[in-house]
Amino acid sequence: MVEETGADVSGLRTGDLVVAPFVWSDGVCAYCAEGLTTSCVHGGFWGSIGEQGQSDGGQGEAVRVPFADATLVRLPADALCDERLLTALLSLSDVLGTGHHAALGAGVRPGATVAVVGDGAVGLCGVLAAKRLGAGVPHAGGQGRIIALGRHRARTDIARGFGATDVVAERGDEAVAAVRQLTGGQGAHAVIEAVGTEQSMRTAVGITRDGGAIGYVGVPHGSGTGLDLGEMFDRNIALRGGVAPVRTYIPELLPDVLNGSVDPSPVFDLTVGLGEVPDGYRAMDERTALKVLVKL
């Protein structure tokens, strides 16, 4: 909710209900013009230090928003009366747009077989994004699958609700074998990698069909990349992804969230108050919560 506007803000008013992506941007630089708002030359992440000085963190009672006209997106005021819708709209700030970014990077299309590595909030939104883009339903180009790779029953149940046709609980070589069995030995046309470890990337490469693509959005961590460029070269596997420019995707995704055709709200399975934020992080770390909603 907008509490106050500065003299340079013209598109927003006090009282407006808004959503903010996890990166603020000016909306006019060369990168923003190309839709890559995460590389904005004047932008930054909440809590970071940049040209604007120290920016406020995004998890507080209030935050000053640089370039508010370009960064914030106004939402319908009546969304405040619908708890489920308000929760779904919150996903536009990060996980839904990130899942969509991965699906685009992987080249998801109607009739394609898609595999999603990772059963966190982003991976589950990747399933939802793949379904939205036409995967997993009969099509002239084929009757593809949406295969969710994950071991947590509560999360894979959400994946099925989001459109997954199959669930693979195995990991490593066993996961690769299971996906290939489901796909007649060929693998998936499009693979979403939403974990960021060496093992998850090796799995992603192993389950990709020759000529297919991997959309990676898992923040890389660990000792290695898991990429064998020689194998990817020989099998014509493309790799595309990175930090999701979710501000660019919000106008496209917003109507589907508002009309209910896309409902990512189930990924938020725990609500905490501002003073309980450390407990929320602990719950996610211990895998007792999927994604935490902080309510003031």
Rank of each mutant, 00 (worst) to 15 (best):
W46M: 03
Q52S: 14
Q52D: 15
G53H: 01
G53Q: 02
Q54I: 07
Q54M: 14
S55G: 05
D56Y: 02
D56T: 08
G57T: 10
G57F: 02
G57M: 04
Q59M: 11
Q59V: 11
G60W: 01
G60C: 10
G60Y: 01
E61I: 03
E61S: 14
E61T: 10
E61W: 04
A62G: 12
A62T: 05
V63C: 15
V63G: 15
R64K: 09
R64Y: 06
R64H: 12
V65N: 07
P66T: 02
P66L: 02
P66N: 05
D69R: 01
A70V: 00
T71L: 03
T71Y: 04
T71H: 04
L72S: 08
L72F: 06
R74D: 08
R74N: 08
R74I: 03
L75P: 03
L75Q: 07
L75N: 09
A77Q: 05
A77H: 04
A77C: 02
D78A: 08
D78G: 06
A79K: 03
A79Y: 05
A79W: 05
A79M: 02
L80E: 13
L80N: 10
C81S: 12
C81W: 11
E83N: 10
L85D: 06
L85N: 07
L86C: 11
L86N: 11
L86F: 09
A88Q: 10
A88V: 08
L89R: 04
L90T: 09
L90N: 07
L90V: 05
S91L: 01
D94G: 12
V95S: 15
V95I: 14
G97E: 08
T98W: 09
T98H: 09
T98E: 11
G99L: 02
G99I: 05
H100G: 12
H100K: 04
H100C: 09
H100N: 08
H101V: 07
H101T: 05
A103P: 15
A103T: 10
L104A: 09
L104Q: 13
A106Q: 12
A106C: 09
A106G: 15
G107P: 11
V108N: 11
R109M: 10
R109K: 14
R109E: 14
P110S: 12
P110H: 08
G111I: 01
A112M: 01
T113S: 12
T113F: 10
T113N: 08
V114R: 02
V116I: 14
V116S: 15
V116W: 15
V117A: 14
V117M: 13
G118V: 00
D119Q: 12
D119S: 14
V122T: 13
V122R: 03
V122C: 09
G123H: 12
G123L: 06
G123C: 13
L124W: 03
C125S: 14
C125T: 14
G126E: 04
V127T: 08
V127Y: 11
V127I: 10
V127N: 12
V127K: 04
L128W: 03
A129Y: 11
A130C: 10
A130Y: 14
A130R: 08
K131H: 08
R132T: 15
L133S: 13
G134M: 00
G136T: 00
G136Y: 02
G136Q: 00
G136L: 00
V137Y: 07
P138V: 00
P138T: 00
H139N: 11
H139L: 00
